[in-house]
Design a protein around this nucleic acid. Sequence first.
DNA 1: AAGCAATGCAACCGCGCAGAC
DNA 2: CGTCTGCGCGGTTGCATTGCT
Length: 236
Amino acid sequence: MVQQEIRRGPWTEQEDFKLVYFVTMFGDRRWDFIAKVSGLNRTGKSCRLRWVNYLHPDLKRGKLTPQEEKLVMELHSKWGNRWSRIARKLPGRTDNEIKNYWRTHMRKKKAQEKKRAASLASRVSSSCQSSLSSNNHVVDSHASKEAGEEIGEKGYTMDDIWNDIVESEENIYNLQPVYDGHSEEGCNFSCPPPMPSPSWDEYNSHPLWVMDEEESNKMLFPDQYFPCYDQGNAYF
DNA sequence: AAGCAATGCAACCGCGCAGAC
DNA sequence: CGTCTGCGCGGTTGCATTGCT
């Protein structure tokens, strides 16, 4: 078989949808396996990252609250750049998010210090100038864009995707995921409760969920395609 | 209105660790 | 005990968006 080229770069809604589906089916552990069977042509690493940092249902969206910011400060002073460790103390926040926040924070701080130093120097050099400049004001209030609330131009949010899945509960297709919600120590959120796999018809009609016949057969009859999949139960 | 700089954030990379064999 | 494989972590990059001149 010809090895398909590994996809990189931004994820599409369809890829997200697929990933959510397969993680719901197999759990958020075997990333290489999920990467393979989902036909995403992504690495397991990439799948994991996308799930952990963006698709996980327990993730909070938007800016850190002042309380969270304070906690990050405290924990960072205690632990340094142990982002994952810090993230565990902030439910719904990821290490990546906190890391990005910290970088931004440090950048602002540095800019602030630079300004301060510059204004100090100018005051020293021109002692006659007594005007106390208000340069110290930090430009830190950004008209906050709704961080990550919307995916793509159509504004199809992850919540929408999850709603789609949850709504399809009525059409329970009798696959029981073996995965029962791992929540390892060291993960700041737990895996969502096993969701009933939606019927294929449900997805077939969904514009995001279009794939070729073989792929759809794989999903409907996984035991025929994946030796590790036995009567609706995956074993590894 | 246009161009440029700053900012925010998703995604990738490389390394190290742990478990399986 | 050494090797291999998969995963997690921290650092970094690149791009899109926003703000400023």
